[in-house]
Structures are given as structure tokens and as C-alpha cells.
Design a protein around this nucleic acid. Structure first.
Lengths: 131, 131
DNA sequence: CTGAATCCTTCTTGATACTG
DNA sequence: CAGTATCAAGAAGGATTCAG
């Protein structure tokens, strides 16, 4: 059997699509922003540098694991910088980079659209659920 | 023991935060947009109405289940309308509502930032990974 | 204080089979 | 053509524990 089964062809198509998909810049950005904690961390840093423990307190629901993980990702992406002060106990400050700051207007735009249109969305939901 | 354990207090805080968090309009919007298929469907519909099978083909990697599920959510939120033509076989068209169209500039803005800055992000990643 | 490593549960999602 | 229903696999996230 030289020909491929339908399942094999579908699988190949899916993998090709996933590969293309993973490369899409807007997709990468959305994947970042959509992370539950990313926008909260960015917003918490928008007013200036914050210590790890500050962030932990300001973002009340975050676990240590997720806060650290989020900060690592943002640092790797160049959106946030990390500064260690080797005192005892050690102190670590996080701060938005210029690149990170350039992203904030977008976060604001998302916030604006949401605030302006959330009523419409919820009204639509009520209509849909009533039907 | 009238006092609560630390674990209990943490759990309460987490639940309160989650409740507040779930109510946040920008969060709701981000949760929508961040869904793997939502922006793809919106973009596919941005040029006009499309049939279910059209969407299925244009968005190569999507499964029937996820396409249907995504369309249902968007319909419920009032972003997409669904029109059934009871021919044989049946024909179903999806189209952006005005509300859905009002969201597209935001999707474009995300795309723009991503395209402009993705190089910076990837350069930052290379630096981070090299260290 | 700041974090890393592990376990364990929950949620998501894709494949498959079936329907009007 | 346009879905619905079900199930199993994998990813994500929280709690906990240990460390510099």
C-alpha cells in the first residue's frame, strides 16, 4: 500500500498546520497575553519596579509557582527585567523594559474595548440562554 | 480552635480572588481572544459570511468539535450570527455581527504589535537562552 | 526572601462513531 | 452538510516541600 490512509493524511495536515500556527507572530503574542497571570503582572509593573514579594501580595490569587513561571517567561521575552540585590536576605526587583512598556497601550486597548462592550456581550448571552 | 489554619485562609483568599477575577471584563475578553481558534475564526469571517464547511477548510487544523464549540461561544457572545437555510442538504452561514466587527481593529492592533516587535522578542529569547 | 522540584488533580482537546 | 456524544490522553495549575 503506497497510498496513505485518510487518518494519516489528516494527521500530516494537522501537524503542518500546527507548525505554521506556532510560528505566527500574533499567535505567539496572544498566547503570552492570554496567560492567566501575564497581564496582571504587566499591569502591576506598569507603575514602576516591584519586588517579588510585592507582586505576590498585589496579585492576591497567584501561587509562587505561577508567579515565578510568569516572570521567567516575561524576562525571557525581554518584556521584564530582573535585578538582584545580594543583600541578606536577598532582594529581587522586576521592572518593565521599554519593550514591555510598548505593550501596555495594547493592554489598555483591550481593557477599553472590554469595558465599553461587556454589557452588549452579556445581553447577548442572556438572549442566547433564554432561547 | 476558632482560628483558621494558614491553609484555610489562603484557600479563602484564592476563592475570593478567583471570583473577582472571573468578573473582570478585560479578563473575560482576553479569555475569549486567547482561545486557540477564536481569532482564526474571527479573521476567517472578517471578509464576509462563510459556510461551516468553508470555515472547516480555511482553518485547516481545527477539529469538528472545536470549530463547532468556538462558533457556539462566539454566537452566544453576540460576536457571530448563525443563519440556517433549510435546503437539502442543509446550509449554515456564519457572519460577524456589528459587535464582532468592532472587535476586529483590536485583533489588527495585536497583529501589528506582534509583527513589529516579534524580532525583538526573539532576540531577547536568544540572549536569555544563551546565558 | 526568592525560588526550584515534585506530586497530584482538574481541565482541555482530539479522535471516533453516530444522527437529521 | 452540519453537527452531537463519548472517551482517553495530555497539559496546566495548585499545594507542598526543600534550598541558597
Amino acid at each position: 500500500m503506497a497510498t496513505k490512509t485518510a487518518a494519516e493524511r489528516r494527521e500530516e495536515a494537522r501537524q503542518a498546520f500546527d507548525a505554521y500556527f506556532a510560528e505566527c507572530p500574533s499567535r505567539k503574542l496572544l498566547d503570552r497575553l492570554s496567560d492567566k497571570w501575564v497581564t496582571l503582572v504587566l499591569t502591576a509593573l506598569s507603575q514602576g519596579p516591584r519586588r517579588y514579594s510585592d507582586l505576590s501580595r498585589r496579585i492576591a490569587g497567584v501561587s509562587q509557582k505561577m508567579l515565578t513561571q510568569t516572570l521567567r517567561v516575561l524576562e525571557r521575552d525581554g518584556l521584564v527585567s530582573r535585578t538582584i540585590t545580594p543583600s541578606v536576605p536577598v532582594r529581587v526587583d522586576y521592572e518593565l523594559t521599554p519593550l514591555g512598556q510598548s505593550l501596555m497601550p495594547l493592554v489598555s486597548a483591550i481593557k477599553s474595548w472590554a469595558q465599553e462592550h461587556i454589557e452588549d456581550v452579556e445581553a447577548a448571552r442572556r438572549r442566547y440562554d433564554a432561547a
